[in-house]
Amino acid sequence: MKRLLVVYISVFAFILMGFTWLIRSAPNPERLILGQWKETGWVYERLNKVGDEEKVNMQETLRDGLVLHKAEIWSFLPNGRLRLQKSDGEEETIRWAIKGRGNILEIKYNDGHKEQYDLSQLADDQLVLNFELDTQVKGLAKLTFDRL
């Protein structure tokens, strides 16, 4: 019985140590995202079927209406603040949070509107976000940012 107890405790302790080591050695997405990012690319990765050019055009016309495309420089500040700088120099400060397992960026506008982006890539120099558009405008929008 004592031997069994030792085996169980050892296995659990090993798992706990492995987890602790992994979590300490890996970069935390919440810290990694802090700083200024400049939007460098905006593409639609997926279309419903071949010959969806009309939809692409529709998306092109709609994209200026989407809140996510309003800013060119995104500054992620500590305490969940995000400063969006538009090309005309106008600024807006909103809220950000990383959720899930560190794979979803949630942006909360001052009017309560929320947007969720998939954090496809978060490296020292590049940030790639994917935004799933709604059913009227099918497709997966990919935004690429470079660190300033």
């Binding site: 987890f19 979590i23 050695s25 890996a26 397992r101 560190g102």
Partner: peptide, 14 residues
């Protein structure tokens, strides 16, 4: 190679 996410998901399963 997303070790942070790997650790978190592993912890949840565990």
């Amino acid at each position: 190679g997303n070790w942070y996410q790997t650790a978190i998901v592993f912890a949840w399963i565990f």
